[in-house]
Nucleic acid binder design. Structure first.
Lengths: 197, 197, 197, 197
DNA sequence: AATGAATGAGCTTTCATTCAT
DNA sequence: CATGAATGAAAGCTCATTCAT
């Protein structure tokens, strides 16, 4: 979302972007209902009608943000899909590479992530869908012999999504780590567990 | 919560309990703002002023439910704390025993769980706190040599809480499993991971 | 509509009736958009939310008034239908009897009449429908030989409806006449015309 | 009004005329409040400020249309006045000649007619005034012995105006008739009535 | 002659909440 | 123990209208 210039008579797209960015923050921090149009426009330094110049209504604005989140999430999901026939030595590496963009995205767009993963009414559906895709991935790896057979990949997928969810929710309070490091730690956890070797 | 007798002229406590139970369901299904007092009392077969006979206001009612959740959660947290000096052979068993009541609780009181883990504004705090306690537990076990040292127990704790969160959110859509089985699967996952042995 | 008691704590139906009656007057005098809910409730001595206790919204209230008008109009239309086989000597008398209730209605409920005949968007349709029924009546009399064959009964029906419309619109400014007298004059006009005999 | 050239860079007067013509249609079809300036300018292919280049405001535009209607109506009213001393044999013919331009006008400018006869708040006044002039005419003819003395010419005049009103409102749905024919039928109706001779 | 961008003013509607009985 | 009736406060949205360019 980015810079928040507040020049008078800013070009339309600027005003729109500003409103969008402020709205994302407000929605993420307060939730849908606690977010008032009046507060958004005040922070943006414009009046209410200006808001309706760029967005059909509050709901449409919110949907736009959710959509934005979903489409970016979809991109990373697609790229994270493991192509068949990876040498066993590289599999962990590839999983980490698939996971990294998610964490990077959550770090770069914390408000959007918060909206899509918790404030949106569709949040449940979004996470379900993500979990489903992850499960499908895991299961095919499981078939291929990379993972233990006696493990319900549904639970694993949910745990991974749950881990993301917690990460998004606790980010600000957490010592910053590079997305690659994070992904690596998560992968290690889910691959090998915590039991002392 | 439980049974919902709707007899006319129910005695005070009955009305109160009924309202509380209906409110839990409504809050869980719709969220705080989407839940209207008018809808609660209608379902309970009483009028709005009756509601205010038993609850100070909407927020107080909600807080009561959240409080209920927190206190039960606190109970299980306490009981799940591993006492020092458990023989290594029993440690897994003890962890499972500590985790099981959580899942049983989530299954028995899905509405309350949903409120405390996702609809309450304090949900983040509640989960943070839970994660914190779990992390403390894990770390002392880690010190004791039960778990690997090269693992950030903060992430592990968050993953466990995230797993609970997903479980609560997806319960209805999921094939029912006994809480003990669930706990066992989760523990296996986090102890040994999914990598093929 | 009638009496406008303004007792505090009036029974619900009274408030509703009061609002309805005031609304009819406002709509008739100012039109749909110029009529503000705020003005209606102010005149009724209640607050805006009270309005929404009794009516779904402004449009529903308006529709109720239009519906009221239509149903009463429908009653009189039905009763005005001439049964076949009236002796020629009585036909004029019967037409007058059919027309009288319309004028009585318009006199008794001028606001409702104004709404149904001019402020409602459906006014055109209402009048079309009325004209249609009148035309059908006239044509069957025409077949029966009571009326001249060389006259387009569509125009006659429209003229009669137009006459009603003007009557409704100009009532207040007009010297009061009994509905029977009015009906009689109109019938004479349309039966015999104004040409000197 | 007529042709609607929409060439880019149309000269000022063209834009103005275009706006006026579109506005007439919109007002006639939707009424004053349902007609949005934004819709008018969109149909005209210009922007809102352009509108204010040519018209002071919405009301002024509307007034201009009403004024246009009134002045044309006034013309025909004047011409329809019967000069004294017409031979009885020609009277009917003269009345038809006086009425024809009205119907021609209503057919040629249906939007304007609709505005002046029904959407304008002054519509009542306009019709009252017209009825008044017609009544004055009729009464002097009545004095001159052309018409029956036992007939209230106020009612007759209102009936004639009401007939016009209905004609304007139902024009589109009606089989087209030449204005002369229409005028003739109306005159026959009001002169001789529909009673079988 | 025309516009992109913005606004002042206002209206309907919704809720949680409270009297008086 | 319970209610019919009513309200204070606020939110979302719309529209005619106007700068500055």
């Amino acid at each position: 979302m980015g810079q928040r210039g507040r020049k008078k008579g800013a070009s339309g797209e600027q005003s729109r972007g500003l409103l969008l960015s402020i709205a994302a923050e407000e929605f993420a921090l307060r939730g849908y209902h606690e977010t008032k149009i009046s507060a958004i426009v005040e922070k943006a330094g414009v009046t209410q009608p200006t808001f309706y110049l760029y967005f059909e209504n509050k709901e449409a604005l919110f949907h736009e943000l959710v959509h934005l989140f979903r489409s970016r999430l979809g991109d990373y999901t697609q790229k994270s899909r493991l192509e068949p026939g990876i040498a066993e030595a590289f599999i962990r590496q590839r999983i980490v590479e698939g996971l990294t963009p998610f964490f990077r995205f959550f770090i770069e767009e914390p408000h959007l992530a918060s909206i899509g993963f918790s404030v949106a009414p569709q949040a449940a559906e979004i996470k379900d869908q993500l979990a489903d895709e992850i499960r499908a991935n895991l299961m095919s790896e499981q078939q291929a012999g990379y993972f233990r057979k006696d493990m319900d990949m549904g639970i694993v997928a949910d745990s991974i999504v749950g881990t993301m969810e917690r990460f998004i929710a606790t980010q600000k309070a957490r010592p910053f780590k590079q997305p690659e490091i994070l992904a690596d730690e998560v992968v290690r956890l889910f691959l090998y567990g915590i039991a002392a070797p």
